[in-house]
Nucleic acid binder design. Structure first.
Lengths: 193, 193
DNA sequence: TCAAATCGGTGACAAATGTCCTCGTTTTCC
DNA sequence: GGAAAACGAGGACATTTGTCACCGATTTGA
């Protein structure tokens, strides 16, 4: 039914065929066109979202209008605003598609029931959440200890292939520098090799 | 027995008197002198630690030797390296005391048992962890979107009183700037008012 | 108590980064 | 298919930040 998700979950967990079917039975498939959003600032994040294909991003704007990208979510990853989803408060973030994408969504009540009924799925979910906690701490450390060039190198290392799929000015936004700065760093690097 | 911790937990949770006694019965009190460490790089973080009085910090060093502070933990907060504690891997961080401090520690096995046996305590623990996730995301956003001065202002807002207790060069380390930069920011601000 | 370490401010200069602009190419989407 | 938008590079200049060196005041700890 959802071949990408099914092979993803089989390779990552020990859920049985029946459990997998149960999980899929609660999912809603959605196709997104480039620039289409699944969460807007001020809304409550009511779904867990799995990206089957394409790329989404999480970003936030400041009062003056500048956009700042917190995260890229390519295929085989999840998209959610944890605070809005857990606490059911209005989100500060936007989540939208950078390419035409295919996603699966579970309403919170359904997802909670699945976690409670399928221990292997709950374990897996907790593993994903933990990994995100570790990543965010790593990112905070990087933000206070690395130069712009080091952050760029870390990005390339951590997300090989992603750079080719997202515009340079969005990578700059993710890194917290201007696109001009990133352009300079790349220029200096190509000269060095 | 542990008056600071007991009043902290009573005010934050609905644990009963008996549950509180059970929790305290597993705690080990420790007094730290300034600069004394409870976790060193390369060790496994085997305890949950509550700070009854004083201040601790979590920091990490780079190869060249520079220190970068990820977090300050004053009284009524918790200290742990989540990744090392959860996954039982060697930590990249140091945790030590900035002032003479009094702490309570629970061995992981004991703490896990308490969480399983006391639902109100588990709820509370999850609340703390969630709050930390939200804070870290906020901090990542701030790191890519705010100027050094804005980060300084946010720090003062978020942790009033902490600034007075922590040396300026450590606040600079936490913010990811040099002490000279922070000195300049403060100078400019005092001139403006 | 007192020598040593820590701490914070400052000036001079260098390096990194931001801002503003133009330009040519590529991509998007009616 | 073609106009419009998005994209990335680069130059010129301003601003911010880092680096280094020095100094005096304060704190620390034996």
């Amino acid at each position: 039914m959802f071949p990408e998700f099914e092979s993803y979950l089989r390779s990552q967990t020990t859920v049985t065929r029946e459990e997998l079917q149960l999980i899929c039975s609660k999912a809603v498939e959605r196709k997104l066109r480039r620039k289409e959003a699944i969460l807007q600032e001020g809304e409550i994040c009511r779904y867990k979202t799995f990206i089957s294909s394409g790329i989404l991003r999480t970003y936030r704007t400041r009062e003056e209008g500048s956009e700042h990208i917190l995260q890229f979510m390519p295929e085989d990853t999840w998209a959610v605003d944890p605070e809005s989803y857990n606490e059911e408060v209005r989100s500060n973030y936007f989540i939208d598609a950078l390419e035409d994408s295919k996603i699966l969504q579970w309403a919170k009540a359904d997802f909670v029931a699945l976690l409670n009924n399928i221990p292997a799925f709950k374990n897996f979910s907790e593993k994903i959440i933990s990994a995100n906690i570790y990543l965010n701490r790593q990112r905070v450390f990087s933000s206070i200890s690395s130069t712009a060039e080091e952050k760029y190198d870390e990005f390339i290392q951590s997300y090989p292939g992603l750079f080719a799929r997202v515009p340079l000015h969005m990578v700059a936004s993710y890194l917290g520098v201007t696109r001009e700065t990133l352009s300079r760093i790349r220029h200096a690097q190509t000269k060095r090799d």
